[in-house]
Lab assay of single mutants.
Amino acid sequence: GKELVLALYDYQEKSPREVTMKKGDILTLLNSTNKDWWKVEVNDRQGFVPAAYVKKL
């Protein structure tokens, strides 16, 4: 099944490779191999968020 993460904080994208999320959002985790930036999918968009801003559910 898909792995989900919870947004712990708001995050505003700073580049086209990133995505914006709001605290409390549930996101689909696509890739967590990089310890600093995790790739997630939110609202049919894929991009990176800081790993410290999310936690695995």
Rank of each mutant, 00 (worst) to 15 (best):
V42Q: 15
V19A: 06
P16S: 12
L29N: 01
K14Q: 15
R45I: 08
E18W: 04
A51E: 04
K2F: 13
G47N: 01
E13G: 15
D36Y: 15
N31S: 13
V19R: 02
G24K: 02
N43F: 13
V40H: 00
E3V: 14
R45G: 05
S15C: 11
N43D: 14
N34F: 08
V54T: 04
K2R: 14
A7S: 06
D25N: 07
V54W: 01
V19P: 01
G1C: 15
K56L: 14
V5Y: 09
W38V: 06
G1R: 13
G24R: 02
Y53I: 09
D44H: 12
E13Q: 14
V54Q: 00
T28A: 11
V54H: 00
Y53N: 07
D10G: 06
D36T: 13
G24E: 02
V49G: 01
D36V: 13
G1N: 13
D25P: 01
K23N: 04
V42H: 15
Q46D: 06
V49Y: 00
T28I: 15
K56I: 15
F48T: 03
R17C: 14
V42L: 15
L8Q: 05
W38K: 01
K35F: 08
V40K: 00
N43E: 12
V19E: 00
D44V: 07
T20I: 03
P50R: 03
K2I: 13
Y53D: 05
K14M: 11
E18H: 07
Q46W: 09
M21R: 00
V19W: 04
G1I: 13
W37Y: 07
N31M: 09
L57W: 08
L6K: 08
D25F: 04
D36R: 12
L29V: 06
A51C: 08
S32Y: 08
Q12L: 13
T20K: 04
N43K: 14
G47L: 05
N43Q: 12
Q12R: 11
T20M: 04
L27S: 02
E3R: 11
L8S: 03
A51R: 12
I26H: 05
E13F: 06
F48A: 03
I26V: 11
S32V: 07
V40N: 00
M21D: 00
E3A: 12
S15R: 09
N34M: 09
K56D: 05
W37S: 02
S32A: 12
W37Q: 03
F48N: 04
D36I: 14
S32H: 09
K14D: 06
A52F: 09
D44S: 12
L4G: 03
K35Q: 11
L4K: 11
V5C: 13
E41L: 09
L6A: 06
F48D: 04
L30W: 05
N31A: 10
L27T: 01
T33C: 13
M21V: 10
Y9C: 14
E13H: 09
S15V: 05
A51K: 06
K14H: 09
P16E: 13
Q12E: 15
N43M: 13
N31V: 08
G47Q: 02
D44W: 08
L4R: 09
Q46I: 14
N43H: 14
R45Q: 08
K23C: 08
G47H: 02
R45K: 12
S15N: 12
G47W: 04
W38P: 01
Y11H: 04
Y9D: 07
Q12W: 13
V40F: 01
E3G: 10
K23I: 06
W38I: 05
V42T: 15
K2T: 11
T20Y: 04
K39F: 15
D10I: 02
K14R: 14
N31I: 08
L6R: 08
D44F: 10
D44A: 10
L30K: 04
K22P: 00
G24A: 03
L6G: 03
L8F: 04
N43G: 15
M21E: 00
L6Q: 11
W37M: 06
L6N: 02
P16G: 09
Q12S: 12
Q46P: 07
Y9Q: 14
K2M: 12
T33N: 12
